[in-house]
Every structure is written in structure tokens, then in C-alpha cells.
Design a protein around this nucleic acid. Structure first.
Lengths: 107, 107
DNA sequence: ACTTTATGTTACTGTTTAGTAACATATCTT
DNA sequence: AAGATATGTTACTAAACAGTAACATAAAGT
């Protein structure tokens, strides 16, 4: 679980989630990402990318002077499996209990 | 999605995830939580609880001088439904593609 | 009423994080 | 080779965050 801490931290920032959302459709160069987030400087984008790479959420393939950034969905899958799913199960149980309480209630 | 930003931020801290894990089994008083996390001062625990309450991950019921802290799994469910599930789906597609590539490969 | 217990509030400190600027390197085009 | 393009690195600043201490309130037990 501790190995997933950098992933949680990486996902805590809305700009980084935005970058991941953009990478879901296709890999992008660093320049592409800068164009998609004009309110942030190129250095800012690169810092966020570094954090995403450290968390293994993004991996890089160099091609000449271009850097292609690829999404790696595995850490998100792991967070889902190892941490989120018990909470989703709990929520489902709560809903079921609520539903039954409503149905059993006499008028 | 912006409404879920405090939730992502709250989940970014390992101590707060630990508190949520403890609350999964049963509600706890603030004192109970302090006993479970002896490496942190009571004030530190209360600050984390405040952040969790602001993110609606924890709600409070007062009973005399005791404060009972309850887990609310709904925001985690929402994060799952609105943000994580597309990545899980992408991962499943990738695995399927990989599996088919392996099976189709001639010896 | 007095003491203990449980929690709440304010102020302060050190650390981490987000962001930028300036400069540096490497590749492509002509 | 020279200029343009794409990315990498270092140093710095401002804001946010984690944690603690000191003090305050409020309910329970005797």
C-alpha cells in the first residue's frame, strides 16, 4: 500500500488529473500538453509530468527531440483493487440495507 | 468533478487513509482514533478529521461530551464512478489486446 | 461545587509543493 | 554551419500543509 502513496499524491492535483485525462485518448508530446494547458508555463507542465512519471502513471518514449508521454493505467487499477473496492462494497451494503428498511416499513 | 477535488486531496495523506480504514469497521470517538494513532498528537488527529469532514468523507454525531466519527463512503464511490472507472476500463482493454496478441502469435 | 475527561480553538513553526525565470542541451531544417 | 524547435536543469519565491503547544469549553462522576 505504501508503494501507492506517490500515486495518491500525484492524483491530488487537478492539473495532473487533467493531464492524465488528456493522455487517456492518445500519447502526447510535452509540447502538446503545454498547448492544452495554456494557463500554465512549460516548466510547470514538466514538473507535473515528472511527478506523474515518478508515480508510474506516465511513461516516456523519446523520439528524436520529441518526448512522447504515455498513460499507464496500472497504478490506478491497483488503487482501485487494493483500496477503493472495500469502500464501494460498503456503500453497496448500505444502499441495500436502506432499500430493505424502506420496503419493510409498514404504512 | 471540481466538487471531488477536496476528496482527492484528503485521500492524498496516508494518516487520513489510515483513519478512514479504522472507521470502515465501526464509528469511533476522537479519543479512540488518538489511541489508534499514538505517533500523532491529539491536535494532529483533529486537524486530519477536520479535513475529512470538509471532504464529506466523515460525518460527526455528538453524544454528550463524546464526538462519534462516522465514515461516509459516498464520495469514494463518486470518485470511483466519475473518475477511476474509465481508467479501469482502459486497463481491461489493454489486457485483452495483449492476451489476443499473444494468442494470435504464430510459433 | 470540584475534579476529571473529552473535545474545541488559536497561534506558531518547519516542511513540502506549485510555479516561474534563466540558462543549457540536443535535434531538425535549410 | 546557423537558426529554429523541443526538451532538460537549476535556483528561487510564494503559498499550502502537517504538526505542536497552550489555552478554552463543556459534560460526567463524586
Amino acid at each position: 500500500m505504501d508503494k501507492l502513496d506517490p500515486v495518491f499524491k500525484a492524483l491530488a492535483d487537478p492539473t495532473r488529473r487533467q493531464i492524465l485525462d488528456h493522455l487517456r485518448g492518445q500519447p502526447l508530446t510535452t509540447g502538446d500538453i503545454c498547448d492544452l494547458i495554456p494557463e500554465l508555463s512549460r516548466c510547470g507542465v514538466m514538473k507535473h509530468l515528472e511527478i506523474l512519471v515518478d508515480a508510474r502513471l506516465v511513461f516516456v518514449r523519446r523520439e528524436g527531440r520529441m518526448r512522447w508521454n504515455y498513460l499507464n493505467p496500472v497504478p490506478i487499477q491497483q488503487i482501485h483493487d487494493r483500496w477503493i473496492s472495500p469502500y464501494v462494497a460498503m456503500h453497496a451494503r448500505n444502499l441495500l440495507r436502506l432499500k430493505q428498511a424502506v420496503e419493510d416499513k409498514p404504512d
